[in-house]
Structures are given as structure tokens and as C-alpha cells.
Design a protein around this nucleic acid. Structure first.
Lengths: 203, 203
DNA sequence: TTGAAAACTGCGTGGTACGCATATTTGCGC
DNA sequence: GCGCAAATATGCGTACCACGCAGTTTTCAA
């Protein structure tokens, strides 16, 4: 299962995804060719397409990995921890950057925020990022169903919780990315999660 | 604003989208060429691309229209109606089919459900449908901010409500589409909305 | 009626996704 | 260590798609 083969494959995948993100932030989505991404990692363009079936998918892959980690963190946390505590902890943890960022850091850190914002504005990207969220949401629902001893297929509660948690995460992230927001994620995200947990009555 | 010009354009757009959906359900996503869609409506392939920048976008357009109607319904409802009542009413209303379906109905109604399911399974489609949801979510947040006298840009509450409402709608829709579900949408959807409105404590 | 703006169209280009055949690498039993 | 079967990487060819550009047709208001 975790042979050298799998590891190397996973490494290539992550490297391709991270290269795609870096190049897109630096040059803009349409200015990056798949050839460039493949070259940056040292594989052929054809191999790139064995890993990802579109440019957008490659870029969204890192986002998918992070979102999936949120789900597995909820599943693997201490079983006696209250559900919403586990969710909040896992959500905060999913914000931490992975090791691949330090391995090949961005070149112009000052231009990073602007490029990042432009990247997220790209329609094709948005779509793929949302799809990654959806895949992770499914995993999260299964984890919650596990924890609360329910049938993940037919249970409304676990699905609603999963969907609402992802929603809160996304809203908090969007707000923090937009200019003019001063509240740090460390307090904004728990606040949002508490709101969806306790209800949203008309104020 | 609403000259003959705009109307005709909107009609072409809707016709193209509906044709794209019909053909995809009947033949499968990859078996439908842009040329086919354009031909079914009687415009050139180039014109098709003036309306939609991808096949997926054309198919998702109907979904986008429906989702946007949800937002405008919330905004235009009676101002004294409680917020969550307005949301529930608008959500149920958004399920009703539009007039374009009767204008050019499907050819083999028996094969429709299977083809429909295959269509929703297509990754490229899922992504675009989710993007449509996101666009509508933004509108919904603005409508809610309007109703409750807040700043739509920076307000956490209205964004969270909008995101949660879309989440509840999607969860209910998914559950009802999957086999083995007996509860009709007319009761499932209000139940889901009530849950997100009143909170999701660990049971 | 008429003229300017908008929409439609055909053509050409660059790029992408992917099937297929082949070469290379990896892991595992011996 | 050794060699073989399976997995993976690659090159090539094809079909398709998005879109810029320029010319033609249609629309709408004065």
C-alpha cells in the first residue's frame, strides 16, 4: 500500500500541483501552459496529463488535500471529544501550510496576495475548487456519521453538519481574504462555526 | 433595458442551455459536440461561444437561473414576512420547472432519470453547477443583508445564512435524488432549513 | 428612413485532453 | 543480487474547443 511506488507518485502529484499554483499566482492562469508546469517538475507534458485531466484540477488539488485532511482529522480525533470541538480544532488545523511550500517557496512574496486573489477570481478555478470542497464534504459527512453512530448514506443530520461546516469555513476564508477585514482567522473561524452550531435566528 | 433585443438574447441563451441539457441527458456529455447544440437551436457554433465559454457552462446555466430566482424571491417577498419563512417559501418555489421545458419536452421520458443521473456525475458538470450555486449564494447574501439592514460586504451573519441555506437546499436535493429516499421534498426541504436555522447541536 | 450600435458569422490559431503503442522503472519472489 | 511481471513515463497523433479578428447582417431610436 505505502510502497516507494505510491510515495513517489504522491510526491509527483503534489509537486505538479504546487508548481501549477506557484506559476499561476506569478504569471496568471492563462499565461501558464501545461508544458511549463511539466517542465518545472521535470516530467513530460503527457505525464502531467496522467495525473491531472485539466489545468484547473492540478491547481485545485492542494485545496482538495487540505480539505480532506479536515475530514480525517475529525475522524481520527479523540472519540470522547465533543463533536463541535473536534470540528473547530480540525478546521483551524487545516489552515496550516504543508511541507511542500517550504520545499519550494514563492519567489516574490510581496506580489503573492495580489496574484492569489487573481487566481481565485478565475471562473474555471472557482469551479474546480468548489468541487474539491464537495468531495471533502462527503468525507466529512462520513466521519461525522461514524462518530455519532449513524448511517452515512441516508442520514440528514450528518450531511447537514458537514455541509454547514464547509460553508462556515468558506465564508470565513472569503472574508479574511477580502480587503478591509481585520479579525484574524483564529477568532473569525471559531465564531462562524459556533454560529452555525447554535443556530442562525433572525437577529 | 427590456427591449426586443434583450429578450431575444435571453431567449437564445435559454434555448441553447436547454438544448445542451437535453442532448447531454440523451446521449451523454462527451458524445455531444458544440456543433450539435448550435445546430439544435439554429445558430452558428461561433455564436454559441458568444453566449457560453464552455459546454459545461451552457448546461449549468439553467441551474444558475433557478438558483438566482431563489435569491430574488427572498428579496422581493413581503418585507414583514419573517426571514426564514421567506427563505423556505422561496426555496420550495425554486424547484418548479420553467416554461422552456414544456416548450421543447424530452423525447424519451423513461430514459430521462438515468441520463440525468449520468449527467450530474460528470466532473466537469459538477464543478460548473457548484459555481452556479456560489454565484446565487452571493446574491442571496445581498438579499438577506438588504432585508435585515446590514452591509452585504462585511457582514458575517448574512453570508453565513446564505451559505447555510444553499447547503440545506443541496443536501435535501441530493438525498431526494438518491434511491431509497421516500420523504418528499415538500417536507424534507423545510425540515433541513429548520435544522440549520435553529442549530445543529450534537444529538 | 437612416445611421450607429449590437449581434451573428466564418476563418484561423493556439492550446488542451486523451487514446494508443512503446520504452523505462519499480517491486517482489527467488 | 537477479530477473520478470506490473506499473509508470513518454512520444505521437487526433479530435475538439475557446477565442481573436474582420466582415456582414440585424436592430432600434431619432
Amino acid at each position: 500500500m505505502s510502497g516507494l511506488r505510491e510515495q513517489k507518485k504522491a510526491a509527483t502529484r503534489t509537486a505538479l500541483s504546487w508548481a501549477a499554483v506557484r506559476l499561476t499566482v506569478e504569471r496568471g492562469f492563462s499565461a501558464v501552459k501545461v508544458e511549463d508546469i511539466a517542465a518545472a517538475v521535470g516530467v513530460s507534458p503527457r505525464t502531467y496529463n496522467n495525473y491531472f485531466s485539466s489545468k484547473a484540477e492540478a491547481i485545485a488539488f492542494r485545496h482538495l488535500e487540505r480539505s480532506l485532511r479536515l475530514a480525517t482529522d475529525v475522524r481520527d480525533g479523540p472519540p470522547d471529544e465533543p463533536l463541535w470541538e473536534a470540528i473547530t480544532r480540525a478546521s483551524l488545523r487545516s489552515l496550516e501550510p504543508g511541507p511542500e511550500v517550504e520545499h519550494m517557496p514563492p519567489q516574490q512574496p510581496d506580489e503573492w496576495p495580489a496574484g492569489r486573489q487573481a487566481m481565485w477570481a478565475e471562473p474555471a478555478l472557482q469551479a474546480e475548487l468548489l468541487r474539491a470542497n464537495k468531495i471533502a464534504e462527503k468525507e466529512l459527512a462520513a466521519a461525522i456519521a461514524d462518530r455519532t453512530g449513524r448511517d452515512p448514506e441516508s442520514d440528514l443530520y450528518s450531511r447537514l453538519v458537514a455541509a454547514s461546516v464547509m460553508a462556515a469555513n468558506n465564508v470565513a476564508l472569503e472574508l479574511s481574504v477580502e480587503a478591509g477585514q481585520t479579525e484574524p482567522m483564529e477568532s473569525l473561524l471559531p465564531r462562524a462555526l459556533r454560529m452555525v452550531a447554535t443556530g442562525l435566528p433572525t437577529p
